[in-house]
Structures are given as C-alpha cells and as structure tokens.
Simulated assay, not measured.
Amino acid sequence: MNPILQAQSAHKSIRKYTDQAIDDTLITQLIQAAQGAASSSFIQAYSLVQVTLPENRSRIAALAGGQKWVESAAEFFVICADLTRVEYCSVEQGLGELEGNAEHFIAATTDATFFAQNLMLGAESVGLGAVFIGGIRNDPTQVAELLQLPKHVYPVFGLCLGYPDAEPDLKPRLPVDVILHKDRYDDSRCASDIKAYDEQMQAYYQSRSGTKKISNWSEQTAGAVQKKKREHMLSFLQQQGFLKR
C-alpha cells in the first residue's frame, strides 16, 4: 500500500494533544497543499479562521457542547463556506448579486469540505492529529458573531490540530460491498448488512483499549441524526444569504 492510501486508511480522530506548538511555516505549507483540493468550477468558495484568542476558544468549546479539545489543541480553525469573493466577481462582471440559490450553497459547502479533508490528511502525514468539530453548528449565530463572519459566509465545522497525546484504536468502516453499488442502487441487503456491521462495531467497542461501551452503529447513528437536528440551521443559513431559492 502506498503512503497516501495508508494515511487515508489510518485516520483516527485525535482529541488529546501534547503541549508542542505547530510551527507557523508548517501551518502555511499545510494550507497551501490543501488548496490543491478539487473546487467546483474553480470558484474556491472557502475560507478558514484561525482562532487564537483563549477566550474565543473557550466560548466556542462551550457552544460546541463542552468539547475541551477546542481549547487544548495547538491550533483551532473554523472552516467556512464562503461566497463573498464569488459575489464580488459576479457583480463586477455585470451579472448581479447572488440570490441564495441552493446550487451555490452546495458548491460552497463541498468546496470547503474538500479543502478541509485535504488539510486534515496533510496534517496527519506530518505526524499531527486532528478532529473535526461539527458542534459549532449548535449555535452558528454566536459563532458567526464571535468571528465576525459577513453575509455569504457560514461556519461548516471546526478543526483541531496538534501533536497526538493518545493512540485510539482504528474503527472498522462499513465494508466496501455495502457502500458500492453497480449500475443501480440496491437496498435489498440493507437489514442484513447493518446487522452484521452492528455486531462488528459492538465487538470493537467492547474490546478496544480505551473506554469500553455497550453500543453499536445503528444505535449511535440513529441518535446522531435524530438528536442533532439543529433546526435553527435553515433560518441561520438564509440569514447569511444561503438557500433562499
């Protein structure tokens, strides 16, 4: 297996870090490399905010549900979908202001996500650990105010970076033949596939070297989506100029 495939397969979310700082030159190199990610029509509709003030880190950690690693990580970034530059170009070229189209929201969100995944992979390749923080969407209005995000920008998720002070076990992913469909979508095996994966994940949780728990994938997945609906997101996004049509 080549180094890139090995790094992709070995990802683990790291939430415990040493006190070692990350060199500013390395941070710049990682960001520049991450910019090599694919971009819809090359609009590059993303920005990131490096949060350095301790009081802001503390506030975001609390808003995210008490995720203390937001405070303890060497670096914390907020990854944003950003149509500010795109709208400027549109107006300057005589094509008018953006109108909040769903397509533009998707393009900006995927751009930000591709960039963020590239940034995480690059960081892991040089020995750093990372974890994405979706909890910043618990109260995106306060996060946007704290970071002074203008219209046409919204925080997609946070990213903690630091040198790992933990070595969690690797979680088994869904088998390839569960997620790969040939020519047409086939859900005839859905129940049996999930049952088998639940058994695998339950065995993993009970045998891992860290905190053991009695759970499976179905239980966690159902809870993740049904208990984190964040119904405020639509109105917030519309307030920021997204998803109006």
Results as ranks from 00 to 15, higher is better:
M1L: 05
N2L: 06
N2F: 03
L5Q: 15
H11Y: 11
K12A: 07
K16R: 07
D19Q: 11
Q20M: 10
D23Q: 13
D23I: 09
I31V: 15
A37N: 02
A37L: 02
A37P: 04
S39D: 09
S40K: 03
I43R: 13
Q50K: 09
V51S: 03
N56G: 06
N56K: 14
N56W: 01
R57Q: 05
R59P: 00
A61E: 02
A62K: 15
G65I: 06
W69L: 07
V70S: 02
E71Y: 02
A73P: 08
A74W: 04
E75I: 09
E75K: 15
F76M: 08
F77Y: 14
F77I: 05
T84F: 03
R85P: 10
C89D: 10
E92L: 13
E99T: 04
G100M: 01
G100K: 03
A102V: 10
E103V: 00
I106W: 13
I106S: 13
F114I: 11
F114K: 09
F115I: 05
Q117K: 13
Q117I: 09
M120Q: 13
M120K: 12
S125R: 11
F132K: 02
G135M: 09
G135W: 06
D139A: 12
D139V: 10
P140Y: 03
T141I: 05
Q142E: 11
Q148G: 00
P150Y: 05
P150A: 04
V153L: 01
Y154P: 05
P155A: 09
V156F: 10
L161I: 03
P164W: 02
P164M: 03
D165K: 12
E167R: 13
P168R: 14
D177M: 10
K182I: 13
K182V: 13
R184S: 14
D186H: 04
D187S: 13
S188G: 10
R189Q: 14
R189C: 09
C190S: 08
C190E: 06
S192D: 14
D193A: 11
I194T: 08
Y197G: 08
R208N: 11
R208P: 05
R208F: 02
S209I: 07
K213H: 00
K213L: 00
S215H: 07
N216V: 02
W217F: 04
W217N: 04
S218C: 03
S218R: 09
T221C: 13
G223V: 07
A224M: 05
V225Y: 14
K228T: 06
E231P: 00
E231H: 07
E231V: 06
H232G: 15
M233C: 07
L234Y: 05
S235W: 04
Q240R: 08
F242K: 05
R245K: 15
